[in-house]
Each structure stands twice: as C-alpha cells, then as structure tokens.
Design a binder for these strands. Structure first.
Lengths: 117, 117, 117, 117
DNA sequence: GTGGTCTAGACCACT
DNA sequence: GTGGTCTAGACCACG
C-alpha cells in the first residue's frame, strides 16, 4: 500500500478510499482479516487514531465488521460490495455529465471526448 | 444566480466556479462589466470579502480583468475561454475514466453507464 | 444540561443521546443554533474532541447540519425528527417485548406489569 | 444453544445472560447439573476462561452453586428464581417507560405502541 | 471565533 | 495483542 497523501483532503478520507478500493477490487478478499489498526498506522506512517477513524467510517458503511479483541474483517456479504460499487459508478457518471453539461457539452459530446481519451 | 452552498468546500471556491461557468457559457458576455463586489455580496448573501477573494482568483486565471476605478470585466479574448473550456472537459473526462477504472470498470463499461443515465 | 456520566458506556454516546433527546423533545428547536463545540465541552467538562465526535455522529444521523465557520444547527426538517422518534419507540417496544418473552412473560403479562408501574 | 454474539458487549456477559435465561425458564431444572466448563466452551466456540468468568458471576448471583470436584449445579431454591424473574420484569418495565417518556411518549402511548407490535 | 484534523500518548476491557 | 476511548494540545481554513 502506497502513501502519497494529498494535502487538500483529510488523510482519514484518503485512507478510507484506498482501503475501500482495495476491498471493492478484491485486493482484500471477502471475509479476510485486515491488518491491525496499529500495523496500518505504522505502514502508512500515520497516527493510529487516524486509521481508526477511517476504518470506523468504513464500518458504518458496511464494508468492514469488527470482532472485538480479534480484529477487523472485510464483510462477507458480496451484495454489499456490489451495491457500493454500482452506487459509486452511478454517482460518478452523473457528476461527470452534470459537470460537462454545466460548461456546455451535451451527453453525446461528453461521450465523444471520453472515447478520444 | 442560485446559491446552494455545499458545506464541504470553501464558499469562495464555489462562487468562483459559478461565475466561471457563467462566463464560459456566455451568461456574461465577452467584455461585459460584472456586477460590483457589493452587489454580488448582496445577491449571494455572503460577506463581500468572500466575493472579493473569488474574483481575485478568477483574475489571476485570466477570465476577468480589472479596469481601475471602473470595475471588473470579463476578458475580451474568446480564445482564453475556449482553451479553458476544452481543458476542463479533458481533465474531467480523464478523471472520470480513472475513477471508474479504479473500481474495476473498463472504458466501455464507463461509457455504457453514462448512456444509461 | 446535566452531566452524570455512566462509566459503563462511552461518554460520546451518552452526549449523543442527551442532545438527541433534547432535539426530539424540542428543547432545541428546529433550525436552532447549537452551542459551539467548545462551549459544550466546557459545560460538560469534557474534551472538545469528545463533543465533536458526538455531534459528528448526530450529523450523519441527519439530526444536525453544520454551516462551516458558522456553527452547528438542528435540522429544519421536522419529518426527520418524527421518523427518528417513531423508529426509536418501535425499537424499544420490540426490545422490551423480546426481553419479557425471554423470561417467560406473554405480551399481556408485559402490559399488565407496565400498568402496575 | 445459539451463539450470535453482539460485538458491543463482553461475550462473558452475553453467556451469563443466556444461561440465566435458561435457568429462569427451566431449560435447566432446579438442582440440575450443568455441562462442564469445557463442554460449554466447545459448544459455544469460546475460550474456557470466558465461560469460567460467566459461571463465576452467576454463582455470586446465587443462581448456581459449585459442589467441589463434582461440578456446578443450578440452585435448588425456587424462590431465588422467582425473585430474580420478577425483579427483572419490573426493572425492564420501568426502564421501558422511562425511555419512552424521555422521547415524549406517555404511559398510555407506550402501551398502545406495544399492542401494535 | 467557528468547526476540522491530526498527533502523541495514555488507559481500558477483553481473550 | 486486539480494538476503543479519551485527553491535551496544536494547527489550519474560513469569514
């Protein structure tokens, strides 16, 4: 796991997103035990509280479950993963189209530009 | 001009973006005189300092020029506008594709999702 | 606002509940500005971070909205309040009946005991 | 005996409550010999220390007596059981009414909601 | 003066 | 050794 933090946004959110992506793309498998809070902190060179906060939010999101004294685990419910993935995809598409329309590009133009990428 | 401010981001940036969009989409024409800082502030129900800051940043971006003692005007250089518009469009497309690829969607899938919107 | 904290449960949760109740029972009105995080902390003799955490969770619950640099406010949406109130009431009734049934009391007996209170 | 443990509370307390309920509802009869700590632990898939702790607390509560070298037995005093049951019932009813009143429901409303369950 | 973030470090309960 | 909580104190952006 790399750690190029962007100063513009809270570190804990960036950690959230990294782990979220790793879960959504099965870098961490369903039901897999995650590194301990302290290990994450060492690896990311960040205070354990910061990691804690990130993982907490992922837990309220349903991606992680905690077994006390035993560690934190990726959810075993693949449906949750799919839902979050699709929700993210839709949000981002919608946002993209909105932003493009704001500056005067139609949906067709927006797609054409993507294809050109 | 509406004013649904998002608590997550600085208000001055949100104002910047609104005015920028109005310029790029010719709501404010090339060379047109902009409302005074004071008027903007009243209309947006915001502190004049906040408007000031937004306009300053737009000026360093080249979208606005100040005619001393006379007010602020939209640039008369249409090329500047086109450049900014296209640059924005490319950035956003690139970002969109990156984000989608991060969560496991190919360019084709990304396009398909947009079409479904 | 009193401050008899129970050592068994996290302080931040107890703060959450106190404020939640104050909102649900209109001690804090719809749309009213809440005391600042620092003021709460002084009043409750607790670290500001602890208050912050409590208020944060209330925000994700939808009871509070933050206007940056301006303070935190009770939601203006009375529907949210009603929903939470009714949800709480149902949860508690269900829990009560379950607990009573576990130790061998029927719904009728459970009601009779309440009436005797 | 099932074992859906709740991460929020100590496992030993949850075990305590389960056994307590089994005694109060005569799943374990008066004077009956309980399974050994070891058997409990295997059945519950839990560390024997955890079971030990739970049983100890039940003993100080008077629900269980240890016959040295011979195992642990349910108390033979039926009055103890009745007392505990009624005390529990009263406590819970009182708590329920308090909680409902806190969020603005009268005793009558509280009863109505129960009936609707 | 407002909220937000982060760190360092401590202590706790549980297993 | 695991996660959870709390404190003290610092710094930041914003208006």
């Amino acid at each position: 796991m790399e750690f190029n933090f962007d100063n513009e946004r809270p570190i804990y959110k960036q950690i959230m997103e990294k782990i979220e992506i790793n879960i959504l793309t099965n870098v961490y498998d369903l039901g897999e035990k995650l590194p301990s809070v302290r290990d994450f902190a060492l690896e990311l060179k960040v205070n354990p509280n910061t990691v804690q906060r990130a993982l907490n939010e992922l837990e309220t999101q349903g991606l992680i479950t905690t077994m006390r004294t035993n560690g934190k685990f990726v959810t075993e419910d693949s449906k949750v993963l799919e839902d979050i993935k699709n929700q993210l995809a839709k949000e981002r598409s919608k946002l993209y189209l909105e932003q493009m329309s704001q500056i005067g590009f139609s949906k067709e133009q927006a797609i054409k530009i993507i294809k050109g990428e």
